[in-house]
Amino acid sequence: MSVSSQMMKGLLDGAILGLIAQGETYGYEILDKLKAQQFPEISDGSIYPVLLRLNKKGYIISYTKKSSTGGPKRKYYTITADGKSELAQFKSKWHDLNSGMNNLMRSVNHVE
């Protein structure tokens, strides 16, 4: 089953902000963490447009840093004060939406 792209867009913004809020991180690490949480339909190319959009909105900042493993430089991301505020709003809206959907789905299950 495919999740609509608009739904994924909104969810990815919140999920990625949440991961970056846990501490500085880079793109591939974000991808690994999303996959570890069984986030649906994540491809390598799907998070970078989100990171760019969040950066343009001022929710995150990026900087390059030498890799600790001796590899090439990596672009790291960290959350801003505006990003923390946006994440708090996302979490509140998600809680309300999730509660409503869970209530609705429970009532649908009783109908069957």
Score class of each variant (00 low, 15 high):
Gln38Glu: 14
Asn98Lys: 08
Gly83Leu: 07
Ser5Thr: 15
Asn55Ile: 08
Tyr59Gly: 05
Ile42Asp: 05
Gly27Glu: 11
Asp32Pro: 01
Leu52Gly: 05
Tyr26Leu: 06
His95Ser: 12
Val108Pro: 05
Gly100Met: 05
Ser68Gln: 11
Asp13Cys: 14
Asn55Trp: 08
Ser68Trp: 01
Ser62Val: 00
Val3Ala: 13
Trp94Gln: 11
Tyr26Val: 11
Ser92Met: 04
Tyr76Gly: 03
Ser43Asn: 12
Ser62His: 10
Gly23Ala: 09
Ala88Phe: 02
Lys57Gln: 14
Val111Thr: 13
Trp94Ala: 15
Asn109Ser: 07
Ala81Glu: 14
Ile60Asp: 08
Gly10Pro: 03
Ser68Val: 12
Ser99Cys: 02
Gly58His: 00
Ala21Arg: 04
His95Met: 00
Ser5Lys: 15
Glu112Leu: 12
Gly83Asn: 02
Ser67Met: 08
Gly10Cys: 08
Ile60Leu: 15
Asp96Ala: 12
Lys35Ala: 10
Lys84Tyr: 09
Thr78Ala: 15
Ser43Leu: 12
Lys75Met: 09
Ser4Met: 03
Pro49Glu: 06
Met7Gly: 11
Asn103Arg: 07
Asn98Phe: 00
Lys75Phe: 07
Gly27Ile: 02
Leu19Lys: 06
Val111Gln: 12
Phe90Asn: 07
Ser46Asp: 13
Gly45Phe: 09
Pro72Thr: 13
His110Pro: 02
Ser85Leu: 14
Met8Pro: 08
Tyr48His: 13
Tyr26Gly: 00
Asp13Ala: 14
Ala15Trp: 06
Ala88Val: 03
Leu11Asp: 00
Leu104Gln: 01
Gln22Thr: 14
Gly10Gln: 01
Thr25His: 07
Glu112Val: 13
Lys91His: 08
Ser62Lys: 12
Trp94Pro: 06
Met8Ile: 08
Ser99Thr: 15
Glu41Ser: 10
Val111Asn: 10
Gly70Asp: 02
